[in-house]
Simulated scan of single mutants.
Amino acid sequence: MPRVSPEHLAARRRQIVDAARRCFLREGFHRTTMQDVIAEAGLSVGAVYRYFPSKADLINAIAEEAIGGAEVVLDEVLRQEPPLPLVEALDRALAYVETQLGDDGVLRIAIQVWSEAQRDPVLAGFVAGKYDDMRRHFEALARRAQGTGEV
């Protein structure tokens, strides 16, 4: 059997995550079945389960993406030299949030992730860790602002 390139594997995974996201946005986590995702992706059962053995694995992948975008923005803001004024740093973070408010934005998924985390202890641990990371980002922004005498 020929080897598949890493790019192909990443594209296939992306195809499945995108299909799951559309399904979850349309029907929610609990009403969406793996069969729905498989049909939406247009792939075989085996192809989907190769990447995601369960719906929980798909939910975790989507949770990672939903929270990951904010982390990227906060990391970029923290790397700014000289440090941005605190108001500007917060404006950039909020500008990202505003880009995610639409019907297909991550905030609709984030709400479902938060809800599902109340039922799934593994997801709850993941969400708690990510929110701790975000809190540390905001604390670092505040400390930098204090260091510049801004606060």
Rank of each mutant, 00 (worst) to 15 (best):
G46A: 14
L25R: 04
T32S: 15
V37D: 04
D18G: 14
R22T: 02
D18K: 12
I38G: 00
G46M: 04
C23Y: 03
I62R: 01
G28A: 12
D57F: 10
C23E: 04
S44V: 09
E64Y: 03
I62S: 04
A66P: 05
V45E: 09
I59K: 01
A20L: 04
A61D: 06
D18H: 12
R21K: 05
L43P: 02
H30A: 13
D57T: 13
S44M: 11
A19N: 05
S44G: 15
I67T: 05
A19M: 08
A47S: 14
V45Y: 10
E40I: 06
M34L: 15
E71S: 08
R21W: 01
E65H: 07
V45P: 00
L43M: 12
A56D: 15
E40Y: 04
G42Y: 01
V37W: 02
S44Y: 10
A39D: 12
A47W: 00
N60P: 04
E65L: 15
D36I: 01
E71T: 07
E71P: 01
R21P: 01
F29Q: 03
L25G: 06
K55Y: 12
A41E: 02
V37Y: 02
N60A: 15
D36C: 13
T33Y: 13
D57W: 07
L25M: 09
T32M: 12
H30D: 15
V37L: 09
R31N: 10
V45M: 05
R22Y: 03
A56H: 06
V37E: 00
T32A: 06
A66Q: 04
M34F: 03
R26L: 09
G28L: 11
V37G: 00
G68E: 14
A63W: 05
T33M: 10
F52Y: 15
S44D: 13
S44E: 13
R26G: 03
A41D: 01
R31V: 05
Q35M: 08
A61G: 06
E27S: 11
A19R: 00
I38T: 08
E27I: 03
A56Q: 15
L43N: 03
L25N: 03
I38M: 01
A61I: 08
N60Q: 14
S54Y: 10
Q35W: 04
S54K: 13
I67R: 01
G42H: 02
A39F: 05
A39Q: 13
M34T: 10
G42A: 08
R26F: 05
D57A: 15
M34N: 09
A63Q: 11
E40M: 08
A61P: 07
E27F: 11
Y51H: 12
N60V: 10
E27D: 14
I67M: 10
F52C: 11
R50A: 11
A47L: 04
A20H: 00
I62E: 00
Y49D: 04
Y51E: 08
E65D: 12
A47Q: 07
T33S: 15
A47I: 00
A70V: 05
R21L: 06
G69V: 08
L58I: 09
R21I: 02
S54Q: 13
E65V: 07
A56T: 14
G42V: 04
R50I: 02
Y51N: 07
R50D: 06
S54C: 13
E65N: 10
V45H: 10
R31K: 14
A66V: 12
M34I: 13
D57G: 11
R50P: 01
F29T: 02
H30L: 09
G69H: 06
T32Y: 00
